[in-house]
Every structure is written in C-alpha cells, then in structure tokens.
Amino acid sequence: MSLIDVRSLTLGYENRTVLRDLSFCVDEGDYLCIVGENGSGKSTLMKTLLGLQKPFGGEIIFGDGLKHTEIGYLPQQTVVQKDFPASVREIVLSGCQARCGLRPFYNREEKQLADRNMERMGIKEYSRRCYRDLSGGQQQRVLLARALCATRKILLLDEPVSGLDPMVTAEMYELIEGLNKEGITIIMISHDISAAVCYAGKILHIGKKTFFGTKEEYMASDIGKLFIMSEEGGANA
C-alpha cells in the first residue's frame, strides 16, 4: 500500500481552480520531485497534502498508518523568521509539538529526539546560538532537524535550496539524499529541474499538462524534454 495515494484531486484557492483531476502516489522510500511553472499550483498542492486547505474534489488517502500531521514539513522561510530571537534548540524542539498534544511542556524523550536530530543535521554545536545569526544553509539544517522531529518516515520540502549559494545547495541536496537512503520518503517541490532529474526517483510535473512517472520516463517524454530545455535555456540566457 502506498504512503500517500492521491486520486483525481481538484484543487485551487479562493474559488479558483488551478489543477484538475490529479492522480499520483507516493510509496515508502520514494524520492519524488514536484516541478512545474510558476503559478502551476505547486504550493497549493503542498498545502492540500498537509491539510492546510481542503481540496475541491477527489481524495488523498494516507496508507501505512500515516496521518497528515505526521509529515515533516520544511516550509519556505518567512519574513517573520529573519530576525526572530530564538535559539536553535527551541526551534528544533518545536518540531515535537504534535507529539506532546495538550501537555504544556516537552518531556525527556522529546528533548532527546531533538538532540538526536540536531546531531544528525550537524548543528549540535550551534544549539544555543540564535537562529537569526546563522547562515542560510545552517538555518535550513535547523528547519530540517525540526521537520525530522515531527515525522518518522516522510518529509515534504518546499524549495529547500532557494536563496542558497551553489556550494551550500549541493550540500543540502546531499543531506537530503542521505536521509532518503536512511529510508525516509522525500517529496520535494523545486524550481531546480536539473537537480530534480539528478536526485529524484520520480517526477510529478504539474501545469497545463500533467506528468507522473519515473525520472527516466520523464526525461524521455515530450513534456519533460520541453521543460528541461526551456528551464536550462532560461538559466543560460
């Protein structure tokens, strides 16, 4: 059974439909990349998967005992966070908020989990540092550690490398690949088509035309060829 099974989903916002009849599935251990032009509905799809908004039609079925609140989510940074006075540890711990429910404080188990995930992301030494004083790449690691606290098996990453320099971008992709090899399912929304076809196992292309399949199928398909060409052409221009 798939972790997430999306069946003929129709979605949009404010009564405007942006995507119709979308179907795809995510299996355990997948590395799925969602690509598409700006405004094609990538973020709407993501919000719908996370349960932040309701689909207009169709259904999302979670398998294997997964709930939509157990998806580790790496959002794009907001303006609020840029100068937020919070220590790295406070932020990573807040990934455990779903586990503690209405209990007001985090217990020892949750604190250990946060410590483990900080170690995993190589940010243990910064745990007392202030989030706003870190570099962009370090901040992403903090948010990734927080996402790992919220999930056991699946991460949803929204443009995880936007605004990072090329070196840090490569590091970030390697980090994500490492997590995938540890058995964590990855869904990544990305502008970066060359990285998508490099790292992902499956591609979901949304927009006027929809494509869902393995990366090899995508690269052989017309829609894939066209998109890769236009994006790379755009990058070179």
């Binding site: 996370l50 349960g51 932040l52 709930k67 939509h68 609140t69 157990e70 998806i71 989510y73 959002p75 907001t78 609020v80 966070q81 937020f84 919070a86 406070e90 932020i91 711990l93 807040s94 990934g95 908020q97 779903a98 503690c100 007001p104 404080f105 985090y106 927080r146 996402a147 919220a150």
Partner: peptide, 23 residues
C-alpha cells in the same frame, strides 16, 4: 501564558509548520 508557552512559541515562529503538524 505559562501553560501554552510552547504552543505560543511554535505558532509565533512558524504558523504554517505548526498547523501542518496539527497545532
């Protein structure tokens, strides 16, 4: 404030993450 301190922090820092994990 004391009872909901951690929740208030979570919602203040990142509302969409907090909502996504069920807060």
């Amino acid at each position: 404030f004391l009872i909901f301190y951690n929740k208030i922090f979570a919602v203040t820092f990142d509302e969409s993450f907090a909502t996504a994990v069920g807060t």
